[in-house]
Design a protein around this nucleic acid. Structure first.
Length: 837
RNA sequence: GCGCGGAUGGCGGAACUGGCAGACGCGACGGACUUAAAAUCCGUUGGGCAUAGCCCGUGCGGGUUCGAUUCCCGCUCCGCGCACCA
C-alpha cells in the first residue's frame, strides 16, 4: 500500500475510531505517573466552522501532550465549548431558530472537524458552558461572590452598545467601539450587576511576577490594572466648608498648581449651583458632555474645551493662593477623584488648556543644566544652583516659543516652591507628602485604572443571574439547592433596548416567590456576560460530571494548576484577567488549591491568508481545514502548520509549501515500507547513528520548548540520510516513527503495526539517546586570520589545542595570510581557531 | 505620546551562552526515468567579479571585540497593545 492509498482508503479515520474506542487519550485521576495538565483555550463554536487558526494551537498542544505521554506522564488534555454569546442569539433573531439548536449544530460541526485532525482529547471530559449542568456552577460561583459582597448592584453610567443593545465591560470596549460589532459605544445610566475586581487589583498585579507568561501579556495586564502612587490633596473652596479632593502623582509640583479642573460629572457642580454666577453656561457644558460619545470625548486631536466656575475659587493649601476652578471633559470622572489640580508648566494637557484659556503658568521645576548657542555660535552652559534664575528665564523663552518642555522626575531641581526649593523631584514628592499629612490636608494614595467589572447583559443567550428582587427583603439569592436556574425558552429573542433582557417579557418566569419570606418577588432578568463560563472552565474538566460540587477537591489538588495554557493573545485583558480574578476568589474561599490558575501561557500567532492579509470572508482568503485534510490528510495538515514558522509568530499561509511536508511524510512511508518488512543490516553506520541520536535529543528538546519547526527540519534531515543510507539496523525505523508520532500520529501508527507491533505506538516510550553518540567523530574546524575564514581543517572532534594550532599554521591557505609571527591565537574547542597577525 | 515585539536570499524561516550566516522547506534552473505529462530521484541555487580564487552581504549609522545576525549607543521602518489615567 502506498501512502496515497492509505489516505484514500480512510486510513486516518480508521485509527481515529480505534483510538477513541481504546480510550488511549483518557486521563486517569490520581494516576501514579507524574501529571501534566495541557489546556487549549476552548473555542466559541461559530456557524462558520473551524478555520486554520484554531488547529494551530490545538496541534501544538496535541504534540506536546502526546510527547509527554510517551515520556511517561499522566496527561490531561481536554476540550469543550464556550457556547454562550451573541452570534447564536442574533441568528435566532433573524431566523427564529432557538440558540440552543444552532449551538448544538455548531458544536457537532466543530467536534467533527477537530476529531478529523486526530487530536488526542479526552472526550469523556467534554464540557459545554450552555449546559445547565455546567452553568449551575457558574451561577453557584456568582452566588459566592454575592455572599462575599463582591457582586453588587449599582446604577452607574456604563458603556452601552446601541447595536448589540447591551451594556459592556470596559475590557470589551476598544477605541471607543464595541469589541464585537464596532459600533460607537455610548454612555448610559443603567442598573447593573458589578463584580468588584478592583478588590483584587494589587494581587492581580503582583501575581504576574511569578508567572511564566509572554512578557507582552503581562505588560498589557499591568498597564490595564494601571497602578500609580501619589497623593490625595484637599483644596478648600474659598468662603465655604466644601473641599475639592484631587489625586496627583506629582505632589512636588503643588506650588505650580494655578487652577483646578472638575470633570463635568463631578458632584460638587450641582452642590455649588447657587454660588456659580454663570450657571447657565456651566449647565450647558455639563449637558453637552453627557451627550458626547466616548469616542468624541477621548479624541486626542480635538481642542480642549471648558468653562470657568465664576464666583467660586479654590485655595491652594501650600501657599494659600486663590485659584480658579474650571470644568472640562479632559478630566475623566472615573479616574482618581474626578478632579485635578492643574500644573500647566509641567503637564502637557494642563499646558494646552492654560494656553487656550490664558491661565497663569508657574514654573516649579527647571533643568539642572541648560545649553544654548550665543550670537557667535559658541555653546553656553548654565548650571544650577548658580544660574537658576537664568535657566528659568531660558526655559520660559523656549516654552513660550516652540512648545512645552516637561521636566522628568529624576532630573531637574525644584524652584519657587518654598520648602522644596533645591530638592530633586523625587525627594520633593516625599517631603511634600509628609507635609500634607502633617497639616492634615492630604495623604499618600494609590490609584488604579482598573474599574469594577460590569457583569450584566441585557440579552437572552447567557446564564440567568440567580437572584430575586423582593419588596420586603430586597435582593435575595436563590437557594443553592435550587440551582441551576435554567434559561427559559422565549418566543422573541429581540433585545428590548430598554435595559431589560428579553427574559423580562416572560411573566410566569419573572414572577416568583421570595426564597426568604415566601412573598411575591421578581427574578433578576439580566444575564451574565460571555466571559462568565470561561472564567472557571479549566476547573470543570477535572470533574465534569460531579453534581455535588463543581469539582472534587482531591481531584483539583491532583491536577491543578494548569501546566501549559495555549491560545490567542486577544484575551490578554479579558478572559485571562477575569479567569485569574475568579480563581483568586475561589482560592480565598478555599474552593481551589492554587491562587494562579495557569503556570505557563503561550500565545500562538495569527495565521494570515496567502496574500499576507488577515483571513476574512470578505477578502475571500479563508482556508478551510477540511479541504486541506481531504487533499493531503490530517498528518500533513498538522505538520505543515507546525513547520510554517515559530508558533508565536504571525505567518502567512502557503498552500504550495504544504507539498514539502507531504513529500517528507511520503518519504518516511517509503523508507519503512521498502525496508520495514525485510531483514535489515545490523552493522551500524556511524554517521547515521550519530544523526539519529542527535535527532532524538533535538526533537525532544524542541517539543518541550515548543519549537516545532526546527524539530521537523531535524527529522527531515534524518529521513534524507536514511533514504541515502539504504541499509541500517531495524530499530532505526522504530525510533524515527516514535519521535514522529506526536506530529503525524496516523501514518506512524499504521507503519508501526506494519512493523509487526500489536499495541498502539501511543503506548510506547520516548526513545533515549546515547550521549556518547551525539558528537561527530570528525569536525571541520574553521581557521580565521584577522577575523576572516581562510581555511577549514578536518580534525578529530576532541583535538587538543596544540595539535589544532599546529595544523592550522601548517595549512598552505593559512600560510598565505600569516607572513609574520602571529600576535595571538585563539582556540575555541570544537568551534574555531582565530589567528591575529 | 507610552508600553511590548520585530526587520536575515526570489519566498517561509535556521543559527546554543559572541565563534563557519542562510540549516530545513518552497520556488527556480539543469539532468535521470517516461512515447509524453504528473509523481519520484540526482545536481545547482545570497549578490558581485578578473570565478581552483577574491570581494561584498543579516533595516541604517557608529562603538566594543581577535571575532557581532547576537552586546552597547544613536536612528529608520513595520506589527501589536494602551492612550487626556493627572
Amino acid at each position: 500500500m502506498t501512502y496515497k492509498e492509505f489516505l484514500q482508503k480512510g486510513g486516518e479515520q480508521k485509527w481515529q475510531d480505534k483510538w477513541l474506542e481504546e480510550g488511549i487519550d483518557r486521563a486517569e485521576d490520581f494516576g501514579e505517573k507524574p501529571k501534566k495538565y495541557v489546556l487549549d483555550m476552548f473555542p466559541y463554536p461559530s456557524g462558520a466552522g473551524l478555520h486554520v487558526g484554531h488547529p494551530e494551537g490545538y496541534t501544538a498542544t496535541d504534540i506536546y501532550s502526546r510527547y509527554f505521554r510517551l515520556k511517561g506522564f499522566n496527561v490531561l488534555h481536554p476540550m469543550g465549548w464556550d457556547a454562550f454569546g451573541l452570534p447564536a442569539e442574533n441568528y435566532a433573531i433573524k431566523t427564529g431558530t432557538q440558540p440552543s439548536i444552532t449551538t448544538a449544530e455548531n458544536v457537532a460541526t466543530f467536534k467533527r472537524q477537530i476529531q478529523s485532525l486526530g487530536f488526542s482529547y479526552d472526550w469523556d471530559r467534554e464540557i459545554n458552558t450552555t449546559d445547565p449542568k455546567y452553568y449551575k456552577w457558574t451561577q453557584w460561583i456568582f452566588l459566592q461572590l454575592f455572599k462575599k459582597g463582591l457582586a453588587y448592584e449599582a446604577t452607574v453610567p456604563i458603556n452601552w452598545c446601541p447595536s448589540c443593545k447591551t451594556g459592556l465591560s470596559n475590557e470589551e470596549v476598544k477605541d471607543g467601539k464595541c469589541d464585537r460589532c464596532s459600533a460607537a459605544v455610548e454612555k448610559k445610566d443603567l442598573r447593573q450587576w458589578m463584580l468588584k475586581i478592583t478588590a483584587y487589583a494589587d494581587r492581580l498585579l503582583s501575581g504576574l511576577d511569578g508567572l511564566d507568561w509572554p512578557e507582552s501579556i503581562k505588560s498589557q495586564q499591568r498597564n490595564w490594572i494601571g497602578r500609580s502612587e501619589g497623593a490625595e490633596v484637599d483644596f478648600k473652596i474659598a468662603g465655604s466648608k466644601e473641599t475639592i479632593k484631587v489625586y496627583t502623582t506629582r505632589p512636588d509640583t503643588l506650588f505650580g498648581a494655578t487652577y483646578m479642573v472638575l470633570s463635568p460629572e463631578h458632584k460638587l457642580i450641582q452642590e455649588l449651583k447657587d454660588r456659580i454666577e454663570n450657571w447657565k453656561e456651566v449647565n450647558n457644558y455639563v449637558v453637552q458632555s453627557k451627550n458626547k460619545s466616548d469616542l468624541e470625548r477621548t479624541d486626542l486631536n480635538k481642542e480642549k474645551t471648558g468653562v470657568e466656575l465664576k464666583g467660586v475659587k479654590a485655595i491652594n493649601p501650600v501657599n494659600g493662593k486663590e485659584i480658579p476652578i474650571w470644568l472640562s471633559d479632559y478630566v475623566l470622572s472615573g479616574y482618581g477623584t474626578g478632579a485635578i489640580m492643574a500644573v500647566p508648566a509641567h503637564d502637557t494637557r494642563d499646558w494646552e488648556f492654560a494656553k487656550k484659556k490664558q491661565i497663569p503658568i508657574e514654573y516649579v521645576i527647571i533643568p539642572n543644566q541648560f545649553y544654548y548657542p550665543d550670537v557667535n555660535g559658541n555653546s553656553i552652559i548654565l548650571s544650577c544652583p548658580d544660574d537658576c534664575d537664568k535657566i528659568l528665564e531660558k526655559v520660559k523663552e523656549v516654552n513660550e516659543g516652540s512648545g512645552f518642555c516637561f521636566t522628568e522626575i529624576d532630573s531637574g531641581i525644584m524652584v519657587n516652591s518654598d520648602f522644596l526649593d533645591g530638592l530633586v523631584p523625587e525627594e520633593a514628592i516625599k517631603k511634600m507628602t509628609a507635609w500634607l499629612e502633617e497639616k492634615g490636608v492630604g495623604k499618600k494614595a494609590i490609584n488604579y485604572k482598573l474599574r469594577d467589572w460590569v457583569f450584566s447583559r441585557q440579552r437572552y443567550w447567557g446564564e440567568p443571574i440567580p437572584l430575586v428582587h423582593c419588596d420586603k427583603c430586597g435582593i435575595v439569592p436563590l437557594d443553592e439547592k435550587n440551582l441551576p436556574l435554567t434559561l427559559p425558552k422565549v418566543e422573541k429573542y429581540e433585545p428590548t433596548g430598554t435595559g431589560e433582557s428579553p427574559l423580562a417579557l416572560i411573566e410566569d418566569w419573572v414572577n416568583t416567590t421570595c426564597p426568604k419570606c415566601g412573598g411575591p418577588a421578581k427574578r433578576e432578568t439580566n444575564t451574565m456576560p460571555q466571559w462568565a463560563g470561561s472564567s472557571w472552565y479549566w476547573l470543570r474538566y477535572i470533574d465534569p460530571n460531579n453534581d455535588k460540587e463543581f469539582a472534587d477537591p482531591k481531584k483539583l489538588k491532583y491536577w491543578l494548576p494548569v501546566d501549559l495554557y495555549l491560545g490567542g493573545a486577544e484575551h490578554a485583558v479579558l478572559h485571562l484577567l477575569y479567569a485569574r480574578f475568579w480563581n483568586m476568589f475561589l482560592f480565598d474561599i478555599k474552593a481551589v488549591p492554587f491562587e494562579e490558575p495557569f503556570t505557563k501561557l503561550v500565545n500562538q500567532g495569527l495565521i494570515l491568508g496567502e496574500d499576507g492579509e488577515k483571513m476574512s470572508k470578505s477578502r475571500g482568503n479563508v482556508v478551510n481545514p477540511d479541504d486541506i485534510v481531504k487533499e493531503f490528510g490530517a498528518d500533513t495538515f498538522r505538520m505543515y502548520e507546525m513547520f510554517m514558522g515559530p508558533l508565536e509568530d504571525m505567518k502567512p499561509w502557503s498552500t504550495k509549501n504544504i507539498l514539502g511536508i507531504h513529500r517528507f511524510l511520503g518519504k518516511v512511508w517509503e523508507i519503512v515500507m521498502k525496508h520495514g518488512t525485510h531483514s535489515i543490516e545490523q552493522n551500524a553506520n556511524a554517521e547515521l547513528e550519530i544523526l539519529l541520536n542527535k535527532t532524538i535529543k533535538k526533537v525532544g528538546e524542541d517539543i518541550e520548548s515548543m519549537s516545532f519547526n526546527t524539530a521537523i527540519s531535524q527529522m527531515m534531515m534524518l529521513a534524507n540520510a536514511m533514504q541515502e543510507a539504504k541499509v541500517f539496523p531495524a530499530d532505526y525505523f522504530e525510533k524515527l516513527l516514535i519521535i514522529l508520532s506526536p506530529f503525524a500520529p496516523h501514518m506512524t501508527e499504521q507503519l508501526w503495526r506494519k512493523l509487526g507491533h500489536m499495541e498502539s505506538i501511543c503506548k510506547e516510550q520516548w526513545p533515549t539517546y546515547d550521549p556518547e553518540k551525539i558528537i561527530d567523530a570528525e569536525i571541520e574546524l574553521p581557521v580565521q586570520v584577522n577575523g576572516k575564514v581562510r581555511a577549514r581543517l578536518k580534525l578529530p572532534a576532541d583535538v587538543e589545542e596544540a595539535v589544532a594550532t599546529r595544523a592550522a599554521l601548517d595549512d598552505s591557505q593559512v600560510q598565505k595570510y600569516v607572513m609574520t609571527e602571529p600576535k595571538k591565537i585563539f582556540y575555541v574547542k570544537g568551534k574555531m581557531i582565530s589567528i591575529v597577525v
